[in-house]
């Protein structure tokens, strides 16, 4: 499946190992949380990259101590309207300081990309080809944001404070 990463279409090097399947001989692999917990040592010993996919009912805290060993954390949108993974994403980025690839899977639609990006997702599985075509368009649709998230974008309030400070400078 095509993958949109950091705004570009890329080859997806990761293989999703469905529970019960044998692990591939080589190549990086993504497993579900239960398997990660059960086979953690073996997975790490492969030494070629491991990622974990969480259901949107899993607690991200379960990965807290292992985040710097993971190449990918994948979160699920079973329907675009099921927004639990937005919270998981922010917790991973902002509370647990996860810096690796944060991937959105499932019903990922173009009009949701900006919200996802703001919550910390940087990779998107593009079951819908319009996701690939519309990145610039949807992420560029807005240039100003009210909420502080961990995405590094300036907030409107921040801009107001900067302006107020420079107005004060100017008047001095």
């Amino acid at each position: 499946m095509p993958l949109l990463k950091n705004g570009k279409e890329v080859e997806d090097p990761w293989h999703l190992a469905v529970d019960g399947d044998a692990l591939p001989v080589n190549g990086p692999v993504i497993v579900f949380l239960a398997r990660w917990k059960a086979e953690r040592e073996a997975l790490l010993r492969r030494n070629i990259g491991v990622g974990v996919r969480l259901k949107n009912t899993d607690k991200v805290a379960e990965l807290a101590d292992d985040l710097d060993r993971l190449g990918v954390v994948a979160l699920e949108f079973p329907k675009f309207s099921d927004g639990r993974a937005y919270t998981q994403a922010r917790l991973l980025r902002e509370r647990y300081a996860y810096r690796g690839e944060l991937r959105a899977t499932g019903n990922v639609l173009p009009d949701q990309l900006l919200f996802m990006h703001r919550c910390g997702f940087d990779a998107f599985e593009a079951t819908d080809p319009r996701v690939l075509r519309n990145w610039e368009n949807v992420v560029g649709a807005f240039s100003l944001f009210y909420q502080p998230t961990g995405d590094g974008r300036a907030t409107v309030n921040g801009l107001r404070q900067t302006r107020a400070a420079s107005d004060n400078e100017g008047s001095r």
Partner: peptide, 13 residues
């Protein structure tokens, strides 16, 4: 109002 407008985490409650 400002905080809730296009809140990225809470638009699909």
């Amino acid at each position: 109002r400002q905080w809730s407008t296009f809140h990225p985490e809470f638009s699909f409650l």
